[in-house]
């Protein structure tokens, strides 16, 4: 971090009147519009070829270094330990039918997790974004759920299974019946779910 600003050396116009920076920017523009003073200069063309090659090396550089390095993801487990504590709880919905002296709520985050898990348990389905809103009476929940399905999954029967399981299971864990369920297929994945 202590290098002084550069003066002189390579910025000198030593490519037939063009600087390396100009040539790099020309390359950034895809060598368009064509600049004859660059294209007709052997020095410029050699430098452009070099810059181009450098760029081709730069592109996959990190991926190659990543592939070559020993994999060590232990830090991820540590991070997960830290973030799970502040999971996204959101709103809190009270249960009406509980013992006297007890207040009990279920968090929005817990219900999202439940809906995700129900969706994931259907073969060929992965749950995405989950949104819901209680209706005006506060006893029914309208849901909007994005899903990804694996190629070959029948969207119709997966939707039916999702609907059925949500209607059965959600009321066991939340003070709500299931109202509207807006299921949106956002993506179709090519490979089968049995692959690792």
């Amino acid at each position: 971090m202590t290098d002084a600003p550069v003066s002189g050396v390579p910025a000198a116009d030593d490519f037939d009147g063009h600087t390396l920076e100009e040539l790099a920017e020309y390359l950034d523009r895809g060598r368009y519009p064509v600049d004859p003073s660059i294209e007709s200069s052997p020095a410029c063309r050699i430098a452009l070829a070099g810059l181009q090659r450098l760029r081709e090396i730069a592109g996959p550089l990190l991926q190659q270094e990543a592939d070559a390095a020993a994999r060590d993801d232990r830090w991820i487990d540590e991070v997960l330990g830290r973030i799970s504590l502040e999971s996204r709880a959101g709103r809190r919905f009270p249960f009406p039918d509980v013992p006297v002296g007890t207040e009990a709520v279920v968090t929005e985050g817990a219900l999202r997790g439940l809906v995700r898990a129900i969706g994931d348990s259907i073969p060929g389905v992965l749950t995405g974004r989950v949104r819901f809103e209680p209706d005006e009476s506060g006893t029914r929940l309208d849901l909007a759920v994005d899903v990804t399905v694996f190629y070959g999954t029948s969207i119709q029967s997966a939707s039916a299974a999702f609907r059925e399981r949500i209607a059965l299971l959600l009321p066991r864990h939340a003070p709500f019946a299931v109202g509207a369920l807006d299921l949106r297929v956002r993506d179709v994945l090519e490979r089968g779910p049995e692959q690792p």
């Binding site: 999971s87 996204r88 959101g90 985050g109 997790g113 995405g128 974004r129 994005d146 692959q195």
Partner: peptide, 16 residues
């Protein structure tokens, strides 16, 4: 096998 976008959606919803 999920797309980055799906993983982001789930993580944003609280899926560790």
């Amino acid at each position: 096998q999920a797309s980055d976008a799906l993983l982001v959606d789930r993580a944003a919803d609280g899926d560790g």
